[in-house]
Design a protein around this nucleic acid. Structure first.
Lengths: 333, 333
DNA sequence: ATTCATTGCTAAAACGTTTAATCAATATAT
DNA sequence: ATATATTGATTAAACGTTTTAGCAATGAAT
């Protein structure tokens, strides 16, 4: 027999599938199955190598106990790590996690959301792509629980957990000011996602408060051409009248590209220029000089997202929950 | 209505579910549904925002069109990247991919295999954990298609795709010999997986052929304590009578740990010691000196695995296929 | 000796699909 | 005018579960 079902066990034992189901789900008490029969069923099930068909169960019960995790870039260690913690934590609650990678493509995000939705996942945790908002809206319309993580859309009223980007950004900028920098550049992605806006706001407010603001110091990077854009941004910045003495890189990949660029141009960190980065990278461990960075509490973020999502799934909460977790600036070495 | 089914559409239109199913699956020709009715159905389906329930479909059809991808460490860029390519390629064939991370834990691998098996995935691509062999055997016993990737067990007759570890290892070792190294150390994991054995064999054969072999040069590392083990291995190696002048790191994490250690101990690469690494790392881009490494063709490996798996699923091939892909040594800069 | 509870089990429906079998009506061929 | 194809639909079973409702037998209580 290719695959053993509950029916096969029942047949073999000459009993009903009800009893088998009851026992195999540990409901023998409520189901009033005799200990004798229960034991017989368990024995036979083991003997026949029975494995339940979760598809059928989910279909019948109307829930799959699966969480769909949609990540914009799984090869980014930050997200890979986050995925790991999410999976780990969700399992404790009896949920398994399906990871899908959108590679920053809106179209792929649409596909993956649809595929998972049609597979009846109970809810989604999503690191959305830049224009993934309609997909999110569709999910909300269908009353499917969603939690965004790391990124969010300012216009949509949906649960999200992020770091406190504004404060983190202020902290990083202030750090550079404290180090004596007067012309502090800021490099960020040119997208409209909420977290980027917040990081920018943090930088702007701090610089304005300090009377150091200059619009030429802000450089936007296209995520499809990070290396080129960063390269020309750096060249631009160094041709300004007031020589820049600090750069705040507002995202992981921009940081790496930026530092690589500075090294190539033989611009010495921190003598000629000071930097501070959003997100830690393994690369920092291998540099001669320490690189200050903002570290996002990736585990806490992941676990919070899982908790919120599960509460939504179980209908313990109805309204969207917006959680901001403080991020730490690592600058002491 | 919370969720629209084919039945709802049929009811609304006063027709049978068969017609709806036929049309929505593009089988109106074979099913002899009139163009008029077909159009009506499609219109209504769109209007009602219908989405098929893949669970039910899979249950009925006995296949899910899902590939289970089980990875030992998703936060390892090598595997993250591989996952990406596998997902990408599988989609072209109409399969979606569920990624599960085992974090190198045998128990978790067992769990994930079971969970996915019970969700009726059509087949598995697995980067197995060290002692995951029984799980593989169980899958084989149940006639569930499996392809191992990157790692494999010498004792089990199951499809796998790997790099040609033996030749790659010979190449790397020969590179160091060509550079004039006389005392070439080798650092590998202390596990019994086939790919490690092959890498060791490559090193051994090459060193013996060159008359340079010395058992003290081989250091085994426990993957649970890479940094410590590498640290003491390096100390050991440098206290040997014949001063070592080359190290071949047989795996990605060992390489990074090793290089970090050399930097900390102020041992200059390549003046005092030459190294060669298995797997590329982003870190190499940031080092003053170029690091030679063996690059595995991760995309080709992933795609090959998908192809083999799908052929097995479709029963186009019955016997296990063992594919070895050549790896490239990057040593010219 | 009758009622009532309890115990141990089963029948059957339901979840949302797909698909083989069948049927009635119309068209085509003889 | 009759036999035969073809067209356009439907009925009902099946996939593997869970679960409600109910049945029969036993035990306890009056």
């Amino acid at each position: 027999m290719s695959h053993i079902s509950i029916k096969d066990i029942a047949q073999e034992l000459g009993i009903s599938t009800t009893s088998v189901s009851l026992v195999l789900n540990g409901k023998e008490k409520e189901g009033r199955v005799s200990k004798k029969l229960a034991d017989k069923i368990r024995k036979k099930a083991k003997e026949m190598n029975y494995e339940p068909n979760t598809l059928a169960r989910s279909l019948r019960m109307g829930k799959s106990n699966i969480i769909g995790l949609i990540v914009a870039d799984i090869s980014n260690p930050f997200f890979a790590n986050m995925s790991f913690h999410i999976q780990e934590y969700a399992e404790k609650y009896g949920y398994s996690v399906i990871i899908a990678n959108t590679n920053e493509s809106d179209l792929k995000m649409e596909n993956m959301v649809n595929i998972l939705k049609n597979r009846q996942v109970d809810g989604f945790i999503i690191v959305p792509t830049e224009s993934g908002n309609e997909q999110i809206n569709d999910l909300l319309k269908r009353k499917i629980p969603v939690v965004l993580i790391d990124r969010y859309f300012s216009g949509i009223n949906v649960s999200h957990v992020t770091v406190n980007n504004y404060l983190a950004s202020k902290g990083a900028t202030n750090y550079l000011i404290d180090q004596g920098c007067k012309n502090i550049a800021f490099m960020l992605y040119n997208n409209q996602l909420g977290h980027m806006k917040e990081r920018k706001r943090g930088y702007l407010d701090t610089l304005k408060d300090a009377g150091l603001f200059n619009p030429q110091l802000i450089k936007e990077i296209n995520h499809l051409a990070v290396d080129q854009d960063v390269e020309s941004a750096v060249t631009d910045l160094f041709s300004l009248g007031n020589k820049i003495d600090g750069i705040f890189f507002a995202a992981g990949a921009i940081s790496l590209s930026g530092i690589k660029c500075l090294i190539n141009k033989q611009i010495k960190i921190p003598d000629e220029i000071r930097v501070v980065c959003f997100d830690k990278s393994e690369v920092f461990d291998f540099m001669q000089i320490p690189i200050p960075y903002i570290q996002q509490p990736v585990m806490e973020m992941g676990e919070t997202a899982v908790e919120i999502l599960i509460k939504q799934i179980k209908k313990e909460i109805a309204d969207p929950l917006l959680v901001e977790i403080p991020a730490e600036l690592h600058s002491e070495f």
